[in-house]
Write a protein that binds this DNA or RNA. Structure first.
Lengths: 195, 195
DNA sequence: GTCTATACATGGATAGAC
DNA sequence: GTCTATCCATGTATAGAC
């Protein structure tokens, strides 16, 4: 017997996270009230606390989920056998993954300051883990003589900044497709690391 | 006759902006209250309104001043005669200027959402003006056959993102000096644009 | 120029009815 | 599971004394 009303936990929970994601991305965590989120979802403010402990947990869950998905998606990506091929894989993966979820990416970068100390530490660890994936590729490429960078750590930061920067200007349906952008950026990444 | 007390406008005004700059950078515009700023300055909250129309104007003044200084500093920078030399000049200038004012840079990138529509439009125009400086260099280099980029606009965004990214990890007194970082990044910029 | 006092709105979060 | 009602803290901004 299907329940007629009440008990929308399976539907309302995701709706709360969706609304929070969009509003936090648009206006910033501190500028968004629980009442705004509730209005967007179509419930009263008090009802939100059935789906999240508090506002901070709501933010942390969104960021944590994003980083988990990022690491899982990269782990599941087929990779070439040479460091150079892997660098290309990483570059294309990063651009596509990030362009597909602009709101989550925006929050993950902008709202770190609004996390509690413990939550911040957790997020930082996940971010370092992701950076480390690229750094390992660059180290291997350097060891194999395939790329030429004076400092692997700086090259890691430079490449990630360059690739993530696409999110600041790319608009779906614009002049270039995601693939065209990825082609061009892969060229620039390759040049930057002297490959 | 020097005034003994009262009339500290010439001192308190800058102190208000300094405190706001630091607090906005650390906690975010929306998360900082006028009371916090006042406490930092050592006055009562009401007294702040002698130095700023409202909180929004305080933010806008900080961002506007930063962009004005950026454009003025670049205009005053001696530049080489070839596009390649100018690209190097730009890269080094950008890194040094940005590393010297991390708080202002952070705010200029993070708090755009919190500007009123009119203020946002003004800031955007200044930002585009700065980007245009780099784009002109890349166009000239491309025309002269000195650099090789498939898309000048994308190369502009990529280079700026890469260079600005330094601010996310650089710490004064760390492993590398500003000059050492600029050397390495200039190498990577040169490679990225195929020079 | 700075203070205290205050108007007034809005914030996060909880209690208890239904 | 959602509602109304409410507690209480905090926010921006202004008025008027000194």
């Amino acid at each position: 017997m299907a329940r007629k009303t009440g008990s929308h936990s399976e539907i309302t929970g995701p709706k709360v996270r969706d609304a929070a994601l969009r509003l936090f991305a648009r206006h910033g965590y501190a500028a968004v009230s629980m009442r705004q989120i509730a209005r967007e979802v179509g419930v009263q403010a008090g009802a939100l606390y059935l789906y999240t402990k508090d506002k901070q947990s709501l933010l942390f869950d969104l960021m944590r989920t994003h980083m988990d998905e990022l690491l899982a998606a990269w782990a599941a990506t087929p990779k070439g056998s040479t460091p150079l091929a892997q660098l290309e894989d990483f570059s294309r993966f990063h651009i596509h993954f990030h362009l597909d979820r602009p709101d989550a990416v925006f929050i993950a970068y902008m709202e770190l300051r609004n996390l509690s100390d413990a939550n911040f530490a957790t997020l930082e660890a996940l971010r370092r883990e992701y950076e480390r994936e690229l750094e390992r590729i660059l180290e291997a490429g350097h060891a194999a003589g395939m790329i030429n960078v004076p400092d692997t750590r700086l090259a890691t930061m430079a490449v990630i900044a360059m690739l993530t920067g696409v999110n600041t200007w790319y608009r779906e349906g614009g002049r270039l497709s995601q693939d065209a952008v990825a082609d061009i950026y892969w060229d620039m990444v390759r040049g930057a690391v002297g490959a």
